[in-house]
Simulated assay, not measured.
Amino acid sequence: MKEARKLKKMSQEKLGLEAEMEISTARSRISQYENDAVNPPFELVCKFADVLGMPESYFYTRDDAFAEKILSLYRIETEGRSDNKKSKKRAD
């Protein structure tokens, strides 16, 4: 999770707040998740994924090379969806 957060140039506190965590505990909880002291519940991982623009599966993949492939595929798919939306708006 730390790598994903740093890719987005986001602080621990900002990630926590955007994922709707309590302001008083956001930074420390993110730190615990990043250091594998505590595992976040799936629903919270989904919020992190939305905030960071990544698929949930990225956070559950142990192999870093495979995680990068998941992220690449996700980006291709999301770019394709936005291109389709743009084309549809032009047709209207």
Rank of each mutant, 00 (worst) to 15 (best):
L44E: 03
E20C: 05
A37T: 03
G53Q: 09
E34A: 07
M21F: 00
D63I: 10
L44D: 04
F59T: 08
C46E: 07
K14N: 10
P55D: 06
V51D: 11
F59S: 10
R27D: 07
L52S: 10
A67T: 12
N35Y: 01
K14Y: 06
A37F: 02
V51Y: 07
Y60N: 13
I23K: 15
V38Q: 11
V45C: 02
A65S: 15
A49K: 08
A26I: 04
E22S: 04
C46D: 04
G53W: 05
A37V: 04
E56D: 08
Q32F: 03
E18A: 13
T25G: 10
L52E: 14
M54W: 05
T25N: 11
E18D: 15
F42N: 08
N35I: 00
A67P: 12
M54Q: 13
S24I: 03
Y33K: 01
A19I: 01
I30R: 13
R62C: 09
F48W: 14
D63G: 06
A19V: 01
S28N: 15
A19H: 00
E56I: 00
E18Y: 12
E20S: 09
K47N: 10
D63T: 10
P41W: 00
A19R: 00
A37G: 03
G16V: 05
Y60G: 15
F66T: 11
C46K: 04
D63A: 06
S28W: 11
M21W: 01
E56R: 01
